[in-house]
């Protein structure tokens, strides 16, 4: 009975994770510029990995798997945002041009980004 409930929860988490992963990949293909694509890729792959890892944790459920799951989730939630932030900063420094509907670019005027008061 307990295993039944856990498996149903695992199916729900798996579906949620797969949804986020697929939406992220579609966003990487469809969105118009580098910054939009980074937005889609980083958020969706983090949440998608969370869903898949939760599904595995609920289904297998041993101590080893739960520990490693927490390690994977903690690493992904720190590493993916940091990496995509670095990539966006590097693309901006490389003068990757934004989408033509972009409203403002606060880093556009400063040659030296350390001098700008924008985090």
């Amino acid at each position: 009975m307990t295993q039944l409930v856990l498996d149903i929860a695992a199916i729900a988490c798996l579906a949620l994770g797969l949804f986020f992963m697929l939406v992220g990949a579609v966003g990487v293909v469809r969105l118009p510029d580098v910054y939009h694509r980074l937005h889609a890729a980083s958020k969706c792959s983090t949440l998608g990995l969370l869903g898949l890892v939760l599904a595995a944790m609920l289904h297998v459920g041993t101590l080893t798997v739960i520990t490693k799951s927490i390690a994977v989730i903690a690493f992904a939630f720190v590493a993916v945002p940091v990496g995509s932030h670095m990539l966006a900063k590097a693309a901006h420094r490389d003068k990757a041009r934004p989408w033509k509907g972009t409203l403002s670019d606060e880093l556009a005027d400063c040659e030296d980004e350390g001098a700008c008061n924008v985090s």
Binding site: A10, L14, G17, M21, G24, A25, V28, V34, R37, L38, A41, S45, T46, G48, L49, L52, V53, A55, A56, H59, V60, V65, V72, A76, V80, G83, S84, L87, A88, A90, A91, D94, A96
Partner: peptide, 23 residues
């Protein structure tokens, strides 16, 4: 940067694939 972010997303997808196989 597009190519690099595609590679980063692919790495996350492969990690997810490995976890699905673990299930």
């Amino acid at each position: 940067a597009d190519r690099v972010l595609a590679g980063d997303t692919m790495a996350m997808l492969v990690a997810g694939l490995v976890i699905v196989l673990a299930i």
